[in-house]
């Protein structure tokens, strides 16, 4: 594992390229300081070191850096999570088709292998980067940071991150997103919010997908929503279908509102900074 940024060797691939680091100055220096410290210790006797460090601290640092970048550029970012087969990619392509004339959209696709999903997204005409996690079961903030560099994100845009299909691990890994959106399809069990509570607790919105199939299934919609609210009383539920377009309008409105807020927040921050610069310049002029 690379000690500079924590990359596992040879596992993660962004658009098919392994992410590598040259053995730089930083590494050489680290080895020096290690030897140096050792020489001063004078012995091999063991000692105790207090650490008190969260295991996810490193990921959280990368996530904070991503979040700051998004905030500074007014980018509204969603982390889409679901089981495999919930219709996430179809929902994504339908959303893009309906929304791409109104908003600048980019996509990061996470899968263990293949670039099939990124290819599907690129076919809609928006830019997409495929991250292959190899053995990994989720995207982490560091992978997303590198994918962002490759995407060349525009200000005031929408970034949709499709996480690896898995309702367990992605809950623990913050990517720097504004919200997690959990997608559950009506061809799954209505008790999934109870079985995978962490994910539904972490999500702001639950998209109940494939509702065009409800007439053929015994899926109990109110019960599913009750289970989700038992875990997360504030979760917003949108019944949606990428085939019949039901719920697409409500989903789009929610996206639109999020983008407006992200953009307005950035503008406010820029205005505040400009005012401070003006005040400081005035103060400086008064001293001259």
């Amino acid at each position: 594992m690379c000690v500079t940024c924590g990359c596992s060797e040879g596992e993660t691939r962004i658009e098919g390229e392994a992410h590598t680091h040259s053995y730089s100055q930083v590494h050489a220096h680290e080895h020096d300081s290690l030897l140096h410290g050792h020489a001063h210790a004078h012995s091999h006797a063991s000692r105790m070191v207090q650490v008190e460090q969260d295991i996810l601290a490193k990921n959280n640092q990368y996530a904070t850096a991503n979040r700051n970048y998004f905030a500074g550029h007014g980018i509204f970012v969603l982390n889409l999570v679901s089981s495999p087969g919930s219709g996430k990619t179809s929902l994504l392509t339908r959303t893009i088709e309906r929304f791409k004339d109104k908003a600048r959209i980019a996509v990061i696709e996470g899968d263990q292998q293949t670039s099939l999903d990124a290819d599907r997204i690129r076919a809609t005409g928006v830019s997409a980067i495929q991250v292959n996690t190899g053995k990994g079961c989720h995207l982490d903030a560091h992978m997303v940071g590198h994918a962002m560099e490759k995407l060349g994100l525009r200000d005031d845009s929408l970034l949709l991150i499709e996480n690896v299909g898995n309702l367990v691990c992605p809950a623990a890994f913050d990517l720097g997103e504004a919200h997690k959106v959990a997608i559950l399809s009506v061809t799954e069990g209505e008790d999934k919010p109870l079985k995978y509570p962490d994910m539904f607790a972490a999500a702001e919105v639950m998209l109940l997908n494939k509702v065009d199939l409800l007439p053929y299934l015994s899926f109990n919609v109110p019960l599913c929503i009750e289970y989700a609210r038992r875990i997360n009383p504030h979760i917003r539920v949108i019944l949606i279908s990428a085939v019949s377009d039901e719920g697409m309008g409500e989903w789009q409105e929610w996206l639109d509102e999020g983008m407006k807020q992200a953009s307005a927040k950035k503008t406010n921050e820029v205005e505040t900074l400009k005012r401070r610069v003006a005040e400081l310049e005035a103060a400086l002029a008064a001293k001259d």
Binding site: G6, A41, Q53, L56, A57, K58, C169, A172
Partner: peptide
């Protein structure tokens, strides 16, 4: 695999600490 990522997180914390606290 989730635990695998967490175990890697543990190792990262240890490696960071090895640098700041000088142990090998």
């Amino acid at each position: 695999m989730h635990e695998m990522s967490l175990a890697e997180g543990v190792l990262q914390v240890i490696e960071d600490s090895a640098r700041s606290q000088s142990f090998s």
